[in-house]
Design a binder for these strands. Sequence first.
DNA 1: TTGCGTGCAAAGGTTTTGCATGGCA
DNA 2: TGCCATGCAAAACCTTTGCACGCAA
Lengths: 142, 142
Amino acid sequence: MKQDTGYKTRQKEKLLDYLINNSGRHTNVQEISAFLMSEGTPVGTATIYRQLDRLVDSGVVRRYNFDGKTGACYQYIGNSGRCHEHFHLKCTSCGQLIHLDCGRLSDISRHIAEHHGFFIDPSKTVFYGICPECRNSENKQP
Amino acid sequence: MKQDTGYKTRQKEKLLDYLINNSGRHTNVQEISAFLMSEGTPVGTATIYRQLDRLVDSGVVRRYNFDGKTGACYQYIGNSGRCHEHFHLKCTSCGQLIHLDCGRLSDISRHIAEHHGFFIDPSKTVFYGICPECRNSENKQP
DNA sequence: TTGCGTGCAAAGGTTTTGCATGGCA
DNA sequence: TGCCATGCAAAACCTTTGCACGCAA
């Protein structure tokens, strides 16, 4: 969780802009690279990785790894002290990733910390199961 | 969750032996490969991956991915039906797997099913975080 | 004999690294 | 000017795939 004390560069700014403008969802290196390219301000892949590492380190960006099969995902979460616990649900049938921000889940983290002494890391935890859509189609065609 | 109806081979046996003898911790393809090599019964990497996929599929082995930086980890959990009912906590620091049977967690499954329409599969879901022991040693030596 | 399992090597994709150059302070 | 940041290409990694051969049943 170190501060970024480095220089201010065009690449760094553009990258952070993109992440902030997409705070609501996950993105990945490929998307970032393609977007910056399309904007006419291409940034080398190595630089993207290096800056992302740095941002993850400083805590303003989170890195997710959903299945180890595809590359990592990143999401801007800022440094608002109110680190709201947000979890993910992944459908094992269609692969859809659902973003769940629900107070009940924070309760669980707290419960497990207080009663079981275990500190959950929401950025690494994914709930696997069946999403509503797949559940419905299963019922229709058993 | 399919059964392994295939042939019995030396490679398959050796791999499963290793996993069972290391049930208490997670391991990875590199370790497995090195061990089998050192035992004088080398097994090709592709075969290890193929067999692991199969074991994961049949439910006796779990695959873990916590950071996207390193490869996947695997751990034998057997096929005692019991593990499919409760949740698991995995310490990303020491690798310990904690079996957690807590009513609060069932509540969560129910809540997510009722309010979000998503049906969690506890046998595939793992909470990642830091266990009490590692938490303590972290605090002692910052 | 049949066809699954294996090994090898090659391919695939993601991420890291070395090194010379560019650009902030 | 002194360093950090960047870009490129190469390398490092993990995992999958194609194919011929071996081996269990």
